[in-house]
Amino acid sequence: MSSQVASPPPPPSDPPPDDVRRDLFTTMVLSRTYEEAILREYHADKGPGFDIGKGLVPGEMHLSAGQEPVAAGVCAHLRPDDALTATHRPHHLAIAKGIDLDRMTAEIFGREDGLGRGRGGHMHLFDPAVHFSCSGIVAEGLPPALGQAFAFQRRGTDAVAVAVMGEGAANSGAFHESLNLAALWTLPVIFVIEDNDWGISVPRSASTSVPSNAVRAAGYGIPGETIEGNDVDAVHAAAGRAVTRARAGEGPSLLEIRTLRLWGHFEGDAQGYRPDLDTVPEHDPLPRYEQRLRDAGILDDVSVKQAYADATDVVEAAIDYAKSSPIPDPADVHKYVFAEEATR
């Protein structure tokens, strides 16, 4: 059926300039280094066995290793005054958007110096300085992104909003309502679907009636594009087209980015539902992109080593900052929440 056929992909783009590709690699390295450090700290005191409620970072943890190309490629086109709403798996996007890493880490550790004074945790990160927010509720970030895009439009600025979601969110009512309103009002918003094949443990083929969510954009009269291969250069090119269109007042776009979840849905997920586990490591986008840039003469041993060393310094400093931040006083449990007056 023609209604289920996405627009043909644009012709291959020339790769970004060398300095941009180095920056993309650096952003991906920082994100991966951060996730590996959080993984280490999260599991350090969960034993014996695995007790999700124990340790310095209790509760669920959703890490984004493997999805770095989405964050790096999209956020390379964004300014601090542009807005981005993310999902329950937000760290790579927050880092690429320029969030305060020290305060984000303190928030993950539940400390007073966190972005939300330790009350929100890793799924509820808010940094107004760079217009970043996220939520643990599926598709929750779409309506706020529309609101921000509407504000930018009314103010007469060329700022844009980006709403990032997983492929499961494309089956929600909020997704369709948001696309409809964005198209109707020609809002400067880009919808980004991070398709890592799995909605928790459910494959896309068992939950979605179309082979590609990009085709759904046509139902609302907006461009939809699928980016295959978890390719940061291709993501960068597609995001550039969408952001340029939005800044020019031409309205919304939808990008479906086929990416990869290297680790479990959450830490402690045994992933027994996943038949591709043996082959997942060979599709890791970070070493693949490193090799591409080495082959192009953009990276060498010295620059790669320096990128990882710099990332490690920044990340370990953020971990130290979080651990040195005070734990919130239990007496202040009702502060900074809407229910404060009702509890007096």
Rank of each mutant, 00 (worst) to 15 (best):
4 Q>H: 13
9 P>N: 13
12 P>L: 01
15 P>V: 04
33 T>S: 15
34 Y>M: 02
35 E>K: 06
39 L>D: 14
39 L>E: 12
40 R>D: 12
40 R>P: 06
40 R>Y: 11
41 E>R: 09
42 Y>T: 04
47 G>K: 03
53 G>R: 10
57 V>D: 04
59 G>Q: 01
64 S>H: 11
64 S>C: 03
67 Q>G: 07
76 A>M: 05
76 A>P: 02
84 L>Q: 10
84 L>H: 02
84 L>V: 13
85 T>D: 02
89 R>A: 02
92 H>A: 15
99 I>D: 03
100 D>A: 10
101 L>S: 07
104 M>A: 14
104 M>V: 14
108 I>E: 01
112 E>G: 08
114 G>F: 12
117 R>C: 11
119 R>Q: 00
125 L>A: 00
126 F>A: 07
128 P>L: 05
130 V>T: 04
132 F>R: 00
134 C>P: 01
135 S>N: 15
137 I>Y: 04
141 G>M: 11
141 G>Q: 09
141 G>H: 04
145 A>R: 02
146 L>Q: 02
147 G>H: 10
150 F>S: 09
151 A>K: 01
152 F>G: 04
153 Q>N: 00
160 V>T: 01
161 A>Q: 09
162 V>Q: 05
163 A>T: 07
163 A>W: 06
167 E>N: 12
179 L>G: 14
183 A>F: 06
183 A>H: 06
186 T>S: 15
187 L>A: 02
191 F>L: 13
191 F>H: 07
193 I>S: 02
193 I>D: 08
193 I>V: 15
195 D>T: 07
197 D>G: 11
197 D>N: 14
201 S>N: 14
203 P>W: 05
207 S>F: 01
213 N>D: 09
216 R>M: 08
217 A>L: 05
225 E>Y: 09
225 E>W: 03
229 G>Q: 00
229 G>C: 10
230 N>P: 08
230 N>F: 01
238 A>L: 05
242 A>E: 09
248 A>S: 13
253 S>E: 03
254 L>R: 00
254 L>V: 08
254 L>T: 06
256 E>K: 01
258 R>S: 01
258 R>H: 15
265 H>K: 09
265 H>P: 09
269 D>I: 08
271 Q>F: 08
273 Y>K: 15
274 R>N: 15
281 P>W: 03
282 E>Q: 14
285 P>E: 08
286 L>T: 01
288 R>F: 00
290 E>T: 04
291 Q>M: 08
292 R>L: 05
299 L>N: 03
299 L>M: 05
309 A>T: 13
312 T>E: 11
313 D>R: 14
315 V>D: 02
315 V>R: 08
316 E>H: 12
318 A>Y: 06
320 D>E: 15
325 S>F: 09
326 P>F: 00
327 I>H: 11
327 I>C: 05
332 D>F: 04
332 D>I: 09
337 V>Q: 13
337 V>R: 13
